[in-house]
């Protein structure tokens, strides 16, 4: 089995990890409460999506 010959330097480790980046989520505005929300998703603030309410479902999901 291939094994590393040398210990990887702290610098190299950190240089590799410097490429671990996150991207900002795309957000849209909720038409009913004007809060930020993910597109094509029920609003987490007011629980509505296209005039329907999903507040109970959001509650059960976020309870755990």
């Amino acid at each position: 089995m291939a094994v590393p010959k040398r210990k990887m330097s702290r610098s190299n480790t950190r240089a590799r990890r410097s490429q671990w980046k996150t991207t900002a989520a795309t957000l849209t505005t909720c038409p009913s409460c004007q809060a930020d929300k993910l597109p094509h998703t029920a609003c987490p603030t007011c629980g509505t999506y296209k005039g329907r309410t999903y507040r109970d479902a959001l509650k059960t999901v976020n309870a755990g």
Partner: peptide
């Protein structure tokens, strides 16, 4: 099917 965002705990995308 309506998406309701990621679940707390394992971040699984949830839907109704």
């Amino acid at each position: 099917i309506t998406k309701i965002g990621p679940r707390k705990g394992d971040n699984a995308p949830m839907a109704v």
